[in-house]
Simulated assay, not measured.
Amino acid sequence: MTTTTVETVERSTGLPDIGDPSKVAPKDARELSRLFFDRLSKLEEGTPDYQYARNTLIEMNMSLVRFAAARFRSRGPEEMEDIVQVGMIGLIKAIDRFELTREVEFTSFSVPYIVGEMKRFFRDTSWAVHVPRRLQEARMQLARATEELSTRLGRTPTTKELSELMNLPEDEVVEARLASNGYNSSSLDAAINGSEDGESALADFIGADDTALSLVEDFHALAPMISELDERDRQIIHWRFVDELTQKEIGERLGVSQMHVSRLISRLLARLREGMLTES
């Protein structure tokens, strides 16, 4: 790490005190992030040192949010500000869920969280379904033409009348009318009128793919490998990935340090991963 990029002073926790984490170069941020994540896993949540480490991680990695938001630079400045804000939510979620034992770079781990929040923002504030640009424009033209003819004729205009006023073929007027249905959506939790029990919702009548089915093959391949582990290793796997205990909690149960638990889990995952690759 170059001293021109960030000036650091050692804190009582052994972490560097970074003056302005948002100005740390991306290359340096990657190295520093590993150090801060390592210390964060050993600090007690809620303490000043824990908050310092967490907040520094957030500010150091803001460049990831700006990088992800760059693909939407054609949007207006006000909307870009909103995009960055929701991207920050994704970054914070990634920081709170990341562990060095995952053996993956934080940048690779966090970008899906960041982009996911941005896509959720567009889903909640844009068209309910993707509609071609020309039809989006035709929808606005259709709304104006319908209002004008309804006022002039005193009734709902026909497709032919709209076609003549809009100077568009009738089939495009029909398409624009259909496209307007994609601008608003109904909640899947909304009650359906006329249902026998009076409480049925649209979601009750829509099937869905069971995403867990794709994991069945992996589970079948993994089961015999786990059965070959000794009892303590199987217990560690169960505590970590079934009971979702923290490394600190597992260490307390085993009577060993959190760092030792981290090494045990890394070794077990590497062994299982190698076995899965060999099977495939």
Rank of each mutant, 00 (worst) to 15 (best):
R120M: 10
R120H: 07
R120N: 05
F121K: 03
F122I: 02
R123Q: 09
R123L: 04
D124T: 07
D124F: 04
D124I: 08
T125D: 03
W127L: 07
A128D: 06
A128N: 12
H130V: 12
V131P: 05
V131S: 04
V131I: 07
P132L: 05
P132G: 02
P132D: 02
P132I: 05
P132Y: 07
P132R: 06
R133F: 11
R133Q: 13
R134E: 09
R134F: 10
Q136I: 08
Q136C: 10
E137Y: 11
A138S: 09
R139I: 12
M140R: 15
L142F: 06
L142P: 09
A145E: 03
T146C: 05
E147R: 14
E147N: 15
L149Q: 02
L149R: 06
T151N: 15
T151Q: 13
T151D: 15
R152P: 06
L153W: 07
G154W: 06
G154P: 02
G154M: 03
T156E: 14
T158R: 10
T159V: 10
K160N: 11
K160Q: 12
K160H: 14
K160P: 06
E161I: 01
E161P: 04
L162P: 04
E164T: 12
E164C: 12
N167E: 07
N167S: 12
N167D: 15
L168I: 03
P169A: 00
P169I: 00
D171L: 11
D171Q: 11
E172I: 12
E172D: 11
E172L: 14
V173T: 02
V173L: 04
V174Y: 07
E175I: 05
E175G: 11
E175T: 10
R177T: 14
R177S: 15
A179V: 02
N181H: 12
N181E: 15
N181F: 13
G182N: 06
N184E: 14
N184Y: 14
S186I: 07
S186V: 11
L188G: 02
D189Y: 01
D189V: 01
A190F: 01
I192D: 04
N193Q: 15
G194N: 01
S195L: 00
S195W: 00
E196M: 13
E196R: 14
G198D: 00
E199S: 12
A201P: 06
A201C: 13
A201K: 05
A203K: 04
A203F: 01
F205D: 00
I206Q: 00
D209I: 12
D209H: 13
D209P: 15
D210G: 08
D210P: 04
A212P: 04
L215T: 08
E217N: 06
D218I: 11
A221C: 11
A221S: 10
A223R: 13
A223C: 11
P224M: 00
M225H: 08
M225T: 09
I226D: 08
I226Q: 06
S227L: 10
S227Y: 08
D230Q: 01
E231P: 14
R232C: 14
R232E: 15
D233P: 08
D233I: 02
D233G: 06
R234I: 05
Q235F: 08
Q235P: 07
I236Q: 05
I236W: 03
I237C: 08
H238I: 07
H238A: 09
W239C: 00
W239Q: 03
W239R: 05
R240I: 01
R240P: 00
R240C: 00
F241C: 02
F241Q: 03
V242K: 09
E244R: 15
L245F: 09
L245E: 09
T246N: 07
E249G: 00
